[in-house]
Amino acid sequence: MHNRNIAGLWSIQARAFKIPYTPFSHNFWALTDPSGQVVDQIHGLAFDPKAGTTKAIGNSSHFLRVVHDPTIIWSLQPDQPTVVCTAGPESEIRERWQAALNSIFAINALNLHYPNLWQHLYKKNSNTIFNTIGQIMGYSQPAKLLPTLAPGIKLVVSQDIIDLYCYKS
């Protein structure tokens, strides 16, 4: 595992958005091209069913959703904790990334509720999505990749979904 992109190769990165005024982070996945540009992202976010929009922070009236969106810019911070988990030719990296994309519908179909703020230490949240998606992409311990405090990161959404969609090299 490296902390920066490897020139000329595509990569999958674990990244952490430092939550302002707290010691905590929101961990997410980024796909980068050979120049190091983020071309895709996978996050766990709150989804407000009334407004039909995602939110960085939600409550129990919202759903916990996997969001695949290359245009999320708020999450990209200068000097954020980043670890290159896999680097290689585009086809190889996209095959692993695709395993994660294939699982999104199944995870979102669980209709999990987003936790209230005080429940993040013991209920499934966005960092649980990070852990689950990481395991689907074939990383055995996503919770240990980044040196961050990420409540919920040791939980998984569904072991059955991990087993069903897990990337096989």
Rank of each mutant, 00 (worst) to 15 (best):
L164F: 14
I12S: 04
F63L: 15
V67R: 10
S103R: 06
R4D: 11
V38M: 06
D69R: 09
H62A: 08
N3I: 05
N116K: 06
W97N: 11
T132W: 10
Y122M: 04
S61A: 13
S140I: 10
Y114F: 15
W74C: 00
L145H: 02
N131D: 03
L155H: 14
K123L: 12
S75A: 15
H43P: 00
L110T: 10
T86I: 14
S169E: 12
C85R: 05
C85V: 15
H68W: 06
H113C: 07
A46Q: 05
V66T: 10
R65N: 12
K168M: 11
F24G: 01
P115F: 09
P151E: 09
K168H: 14
K144I: 00
Q41S: 01
T148F: 07
S60L: 03
L149G: 00
A14V: 08
L155A: 12
K168G: 01
I73K: 15
S140G: 11
A30W: 08
S61C: 02
D48C: 02
T128N: 11
A109N: 14
L31C: 05
L155E: 14
G8D: 00
H113R: 15
Q141W: 00
Q77W: 03
L112S: 01
N5M: 03
Y21W: 07
T53Y: 00
K55D: 08
Y139F: 15
S11E: 10
I162Q: 04
F28G: 07
S11F: 00
N3V: 02
D163L: 10
Y167D: 12
V156C: 05
E95Y: 12
Q13K: 08
L112I: 12
P115D: 08
I42K: 04
I104H: 02
P23W: 03
A56M: 14
K18S: 13
G134D: 05
N5L: 03
G8S: 00
Q80L: 09
V39L: 02
T22I: 06
L110V: 06
L146T: 07
F17A: 05
I57C: 00
I6F: 00
W118P: 00
F130D: 08
L145P: 01
T54I: 13
L76T: 10
P151M: 08
V38Y: 08
K50G: 03
V39P: 07
L110C: 10
I153A: 12
L117H: 11
A87H: 15
V157Y: 06
L117P: 03
D33K: 03
F24H: 08
K50Y: 04
A87E: 09
L45K: 02
I93W: 07
I153E: 14
P49L: 05
E92T: 13
E95Q: 15
Y21E: 14
Q119K: 09
V39E: 10
W29M: 03
D69K: 08
P151L: 09
K168T: 15
A7I: 04
L164M: 10
P23T: 12
Q41N: 07
T53D: 02
I6Y: 02
H26Q: 08
I57Q: 11
T148C: 09
Y165S: 11
P34E: 03
